[in-house]
Design a protein around this nucleic acid. Structure first.
Length: 256
DNA sequence: ATGGTTGCTTAGCAA
């Protein structure tokens, strides 16, 4: 079973690349973030023509998360357990053949001096509370998505320069560690200890060309699922060519 | 050096 996470940065702007990637990569489940479209305007026919069922939690202009899957999921949940009705659309969860998948788009935070930064930290604390309330780490569980946090020094291009800035701040890393403390392992790091493996490069300043990346998109697996994980791949080539997302897919292969 | 680029929406915000 191949399960991928990818922040597509607008499904409508990225549709040609997403369709080409689905056709080539053939994931069983693709967890996507920042679809930036409400349900009514979502390009459902094109995704279905590629052989995928779209299960979406859409929002106009910002945010929005979805599953594209070869078979329809069961027990779909939209939003955090304590979300207000008008909250950002940042979490969707569903079951796929015995695997519970929670797909998240963690707030970016903007900068450590922004009012959005404490909002990000609080959202991550609420995510840990959601896991406690809704999930079971003794069963096959995957928490994946764009966490907007690089966990360790080896996950950014210049840790000394970036330390304490947004996406690489100890308070964000502590919240991510608390989330993993629920009983989840960073699946990529089970297979790849090396530095310099990034999933996001800013559009600005030629960051991709300069190697200025961050590893902020993660597959976090419960112990039963982690044991079944055969490989995890960061598809760096998806950052190349015309109209790429600023993030690339991360694909896990599970022997299920 | 508070820049730079992309997307949504149409000048300004978000990332």
């Amino acid at each position: 079973m191949k399960i991928a996470t990818w922040n597509v940065n607008s499904i409508r702007a990225r549709l040609p690349r997403v369709l080409a990637w689905l056709s080539k990569a053939q994931p069983d489940v693709a967890c996507v973030q920042e679809i930036k479209v409400e349900d009514a305007a979502f390009p459902r026919a094109e995704i279905e023509a590629a052989g995928y069922t779209a299960t979406i939690f859409g929002q106009k202009t910002y945010n929005g998360v979805a599953f594209f899957s070869k078979t329809a999921p069961t027990d779909v949940e939209r939003g955090l357990h304590d979300d207000a009705p008008d909250s950002h659309k940042r979490l969707i969860a569903a079951s796929f053949g015995g695997v519970r998948i929670v797909n998240v788009y963690v707030p970016n935070g903007e900068s450590v001096t922004s009012e959005k930064f404490p909002f990000k930290l609080k959202w991550m604390e609420r995510l840990r509370a959601y896991l406690d309330a809704k999930c079971d780490p003794s069963t096959p569980l995957l928490l994946c998505g764009d966490f907007n946090v690089a966990p360790e020094d080896r996950d950014v291009y210049d840790p000394e320069k970036l330390r304490g800035t947004v996406l690489f701040h100890p308070e964000e890393q502590a919240r991510l560690a608390s989330i993993c403390g629920f009983g989840l392992k960073d699946a990529f790091r089970m297979h790849h200890p090396e530095a310099g493996q990034y999933t996001w490069w800013d559009y600005r300043g030629g960051a991709f060309h300069r190697g200025h990346g961050y590893r902020i998109d993660h597959l976090l697996a419960s112990e039963p699922l982690a044991r079944a994980c055969r490989a995890v791949t960061i598809e760096r080539d998806e950052r190349k060519g015309p109209q790429p997302s600023d993030h690339v897919p991360v694909v896990g292969d599970f022997g299920l």
